[in-house]
Structures are given as structure tokens and as C-alpha cells.
């Protein structure tokens, strides 16, 4: 589905991604690990077409993704519908005056008739168990609630891929568990999930593959979970990050 070959990003003396080779298949549940500033967030921006690689090739469904591809608004819009992104800071993602409008923002743009939009919004609210927030103002919600609304607002687009930048950071234990089980549910429903976290132990029983970034902006580990779980040294290393 996704394929990166020899990707570099940044200036030669200040790279934030260095020689990244990576491919992700449909319905994988990938977790990125690594210290802050190791390039995870840059990779996410690249993945979502917010920035383009300085060097190397990025393809999505065999289509090369670059500035030229995004010049065509039809390509850009289709791509953004297929790949959903949940920002680390939910505040930047919520700008409507009610939770309902927030979730309806995508489907309305896709041109669905209002009953269909309504169905999608209600389904998302129910799925994430946030029906009671329907008429609240997103600005005043708690951190955990904002995160759920942000996820719902992306889900309503029905993306094939869901990218989540540190979805567990700054939330209560209860909220974290809630979000993990939502990701698991979506994975079971056939979605491709790519996320990043600092908490290996919490997520190790759900994801299918681990990728570790190092401080010099390269990938130092790329292994399926099965393999990681049989290697106790590796487990200790990842858990100590």
C-alpha cells in the first residue's frame, strides 16, 4: 500500500529523515517507536502528503506521491479521503462550534445528502461512545474527549488508512485503554493503522509490526510483533524507551 524508497527529508547537514526504506501492506497495524525528534512526526507528515521528500520515492497504491500529484485537486482530495490523520494535539484539529458539525465536516464535503451525513455522525458517536457530547463545543472538552472527537471526525470520512501521532500521550489510563480498543476494532474491520507511541508494553499485544527510529533519523528495527515477542533482549530494550 505504502512504499518509501531511499527517502531523505531536510537539508544535507540537518536531516530529519535519512535513507528510509519501508513498505506497509493493507490491514497492517504498525507501531513506530523512537525518541522525540527521531523523525516519526516527519514521516507522518510525509505519509499524509503535507510535505514531500527532498530525495527518494514515495508511492501509495502504486501511485507516486509528490508535489505534481497534489497539483491536481481531485488527486489530493481522494488521497486525503483515503488516508486519515489524527494529530498529536487534538486542539489544532477541532475548529467547529459543535461536536456534531465537527464530525459532519468531512461527509458534508463529500456531497452526501443530509440524512446520510446524519447517519454517519451518529454511527461514529455511537462507535466511540460519545453520544452525550453531540451538541457540546469541542473547544471546552477534556483532553480525552477531544481526542475521541478528533478520531470520530476522521473516521466519518471512512479512510482506508488511519494514521495516529502519539494518540495515547497525555491521556488518563482509562482513556488510553479506550483508544487502544477502538484502534483494535478498526484493525479488525479491515483498516490499516499506523501509530506512534512511547509505551511499547501497553501496545505490544495489539499491533502486528514494530518499527524503531534512532536519534540519527534512520530505521534501526523493523520486525513483526511475533518476532519481537520471542526476543527477550529486544523486549527489554523497547520497553525501556
Amino acid at each position: 500500500m505504502f512504499s518509501f524508497s531511499n527517502i531523505r527529508y531536510g537539508y544535507t547537514d540537518k536531516l530529519s529523515l535519512n535513507n528510509i526504506n519501508l513498505s506497509i501492506k493493507k490491514n497492517e497495524f504498525v507501531c513506530l517507536l523512537g525518541p522525540n525528534g527521531s523523525g516519526k512526526s516527519t514521516l507522518f507528515k510525509l505519509l499524509n502528503g503535507l510535505i514531500y521528500p527532498s530525495d527518494g520515492q514515495y508511492t501509495f497504491n502504486d501511485q507516486q506521491i509528490n508535489a505534481h500529484f497534489f497539483k491536481n485537486s481531485v488527486n489530493a482530495k481522494k488521497f486525503h479521503q483515503q488516508v486519515g490523520f489524527v494529530f498529536q494535539n487534538s486542539d489544532v484539529q477541532l475548529f467547529n462550534t459543535t461536536v456534531y458539525d465537527e464530525i459532519a465536516f468531512g461527509p458534508r464535503q463529500m456531497g452526501f445528502p443530509e440524512p446520510e451525513v446524519n447517519k454517519r455522525v451518529i454511527d461514529c458517536l455511537t462507535l466511540l461512545n460519545i453520544n452525550k457530547l453531540e451538541n457540546r463545543v469541542p473547544y471546552h472538552l477534556s483532553g480525552g474527549e477531544k481526542k475521541l472527537v478528533a478520531i470520530a471526525s476522521v473516521l466519518s470520512l471512512n479512510p482506508d488508512v488511519l494514521v495516529l501521532d502519539e494518540p495515547l500521550t497525555g491521556l488518563t489510563a482509562q482513556a488510553q485503554e479506550n483508544i487502544i480498543s477502538i484502534m483494535q476494532g478498526l484493525h479488525n474491520a479491515g483498516k490499516t493503522i499506523i501509530m506512534s507511541t512511547h509505551n511499547f508494553t501497553q501496545i505490544k499485544d495489539y499491533v502486528t509490526r514494530f518499527i524503531e527510529f534512532s536519534e540519527n533519523h534512520t530505521i534501526v528495527l523493523d520486525a513483526p510483533t511475533k518476532l519481537v515477542l520471542t526476543n527477550s533482549d529486544l523486549m527489554v530494550h523497547l520497553a525501556s524507551m
Partner: peptide
């Protein structure tokens, strides 16, 4: 907890068949 995900709505478990309209707005 997992029970509630059995009610995954149909539209969410099937791929979206969406083709955007062309619009020059960048």
C-alpha cells in the same frame, strides 16, 4: 468492551467509493 465493536457500521467496514469533483482551490 470489545462487544461494542461488533456494531461496526457497514459503511465503515467497506471501502469508500468516492470520486471528488474537480475544483481549482489551493
Amino acid at each position: 468492551k470489545n462487544q461494542k465493536y461488533l456494531n461496526m457500521p457497514d459503511w465503515l467496514s467497506s471501502p469508500e467509493n468516492y470520486s471528488p469533483v474537480k475544483q481549482k482551490n489551493t
